[in-house]
Amino acid sequence: MFNEIESYYLKPGEIFYSEEPAMVRTVLGSCVSITMFVPRFKIGIISHCMLPSSQDAIHRGEDAMKYVDCALLYMNKKIINSGAEKRETEVKLFGGSNMFTIADADSGVGIKNVNSAINLIKKLGYGIVSSDTGGNFTRKLFFSFDTGKVYLRKISKIQGM
């Protein structure tokens, strides 16, 4: 299946949107990926967000898509502009690990990313159909723009180094 369609690697701070079949892969630690898929149109979008809120940004002119709030607002706009309805959009959330032993699991950037994503997804009027967040390990994701499925592999911190 992976060899039959175009494959892309999504780096931190990037978003990938497609109306064509594709496979997008990424690796997450404390970052989060949000996927949106509309089965009726077979369109999808995936983000790789590093930080919870652009309000925390000191410098302007940075890549805004590295922030959960900016990425989700952009993703919402792409879905709405496609003609899809929110109720038919499958939203999934992944990542947000506590990758640093010095950070408290409840106050680290990973949990802040997850909470920011959940709150804005709900505020925008979407439901989350699937998620895998938290923990203290790396996740490798594969997102199929043909089916909307997300394939997930958890990697221990030792293997990921």
Rank of each mutant, 00 (worst) to 15 (best):
N3F: 15
E4A: 13
I5K: 13
E6G: 14
E14K: 06
E20I: 13
V27F: 09
V27W: 09
L28N: 05
G29I: 07
M36Y: 11
F37A: 08
I46G: 07
I46A: 14
I46D: 00
H48T: 11
C49Y: 07
M50H: 13
M50Q: 15
P52R: 11
Q55M: 11
A57P: 00
G61P: 01
A64L: 12
K66T: 09
V68C: 01
I80N: 03
A84V: 00
E90Q: 06
E90K: 14
G95R: 02
G95S: 00
S97P: 03
F100E: 07
D104H: 09
V109F: 02
G110I: 01
G110M: 00
S116F: 09
I118Q: 09
N119C: 08
K123A: 08
G125Y: 04
I128F: 03
I128T: 04
V129E: 10
V129P: 02
D132R: 10
N136K: 13
R139E: 08
R139D: 06
R139W: 08
L141S: 09
L141W: 11
F142A: 15
F143L: 10
F143K: 09
S144K: 09
K149R: 14
V150H: 00
V150W: 07
V150R: 06
Y151W: 10
L152R: 13
I155C: 05
I155Q: 04
S156K: 11
I158P: 02
G160Q: 14
M161F: 14
